[in-house]
């Protein structure tokens, strides 16, 4: 167990190192001088020189990388050109919205995808199964922004049940009631991913239900519901859990769209605006943090295998 964890952390560190080189070189891949691109046409030569100096662009490139990576390791991701504040501060400002959005979305995905997938599997071939599979296909096919816009049209603009945009922090008055601002965005974000989990749960349940040990369980004379939950589902979840790593990756990219549609002050929207503002330190910082998060989530997914499947030797 210990050796496996250390090995996996080592592999994650190597991935992070490779990613950091890509993220770092990204600023040098911009055609022309990064500083004049960042500052735009109207910049004076003094401003350009000052920014070059601040960014250390006159040093050899490997020195620049070491300085950047060393600072990043100490939690210093540089300063935002637009906000004139540390990048970590910019990320922290959007973190509450993005983390809560991701959590609520994950809850929807689990609460909808898995039980409905089970239902479709145990009703295989009936109109319930066909209806649910059709619904899943539909949800997986429509783009997140389209679902988001329609949710706004119907439930915010039309019925007025939920706010259509923005998110005031739950720590600044309003408390947990502010979570209603995240309801529609989280549903829009969950829809395609829950549909994928639904289909995966259904397919995996059907695969497992053909296994010999399920017949053994039935032969014991235990209740069919127990066969489904304790024998089939328990094994089917192995495949579903591994999909959560990918689901998380999908959430990151789709959150960019969702936060923009619902005007949420999250990291996804920050990164879009930073791209438009050519605020490269922020873009680099967000990508680096996202990579770290992704590595941690996948490490946790792999470790959770051990809990679900005793055959996995760690």
């Amino acid at each position: 167990m210990g050796r496996y964890v250390i090995g996996r952390i080592g592999a994650a560190a190597a991935t992070l190192f490779a990613a950091s080189i890509v993220i770092f070189s990204f600023i040098h891949l911009i055609p022309g001088d990064p500083v004049s691109v960042m500052l735009g046409d109207a910049a004076t030569p003094e401003q350009v020189a000052a920014l070059r100096e601040r960014m250390g662009l006159d040093e050899p490139i490997w020195v620049q990388y070491l300085v950047w990576a060393g600072n990043a390791l100490q939690g210093d991701l540089g300063r935002s050109i637009f906000f004139e504040t540390p990048v970590t501060q910019v990320i922290a400002d959007g973190a509450e919205t993005s983390i809560l959005l991701a959590l609520i979305t994950m809850i929807w995905i689990v609460l909808f995808g898995i039980p409905v997938g089970i239902l479709a599997a145990i009703r295989q071939g009936t109109w319930i199964d066909q209806g649910l599979s059709g619904l899943a296909m539909l949800l997986a096919s429509v783009p997140t922004f389209w679902v988001g816009l329609y949710l706004i049209l119907i439930f915010a603009a039309g019925l007025g049940w939920f706010p259509s945009s923005g998110y005031p922090s739950i720590f600044e008055g309003g408390g947990l009631a502010n979570l209603q601002y995240l309801l529609l965005p989280s549903i829009a974000l969950a829809a395609p991913n829950a549909a994928l989990i639904l289909r995966l749960t259904r397919a995996s349940m059907l695969d497992v239900s053909r296994e010999d040990f399920v017949r053994t369980a039935r032969a014991k004379g235990i209740r069919p519901s127990r066969v489904v939950l304790r024998h089939i589902l328990r094994n089917a979840l192995l495949a579903v859990v591994s999909a959560f790593g990918f689901t998380f990756a999908a959430l990151i990219s789709e959150a960019v769209v969702t936060e923009t549609v619902f005007a949420l002050p999250g990291i996804g929207r920050t990164v879009v605006q930073s791209i438009l503002r050519r605020d490269y330190p922020v873009i680099q910082g967000v990508i680096l943090v996202t990579v770290c998060l992704y590595l941690v989530i996948n490490l946790l997914v792999d470790l959770s295998y051990r809990l679900l499947d005793p055959r996995v030797e760690l």
């Binding site: 296994e211 010999d212 040990f213 017949r215 053994t216 369980a217 304790r230 024998h231 328990r234 094994n235 192995l238 679900l308 499947d309 005793p310 055959r311």
Partner: peptide
């Protein structure tokens, strides 16, 4: 059953 390798639930 015939197949002892697959007739037991692998995760319990």
């Amino acid at each position: 059953f015939q197949e002892p390798m697959t007739s037991l639930n692998p995760v319990t």
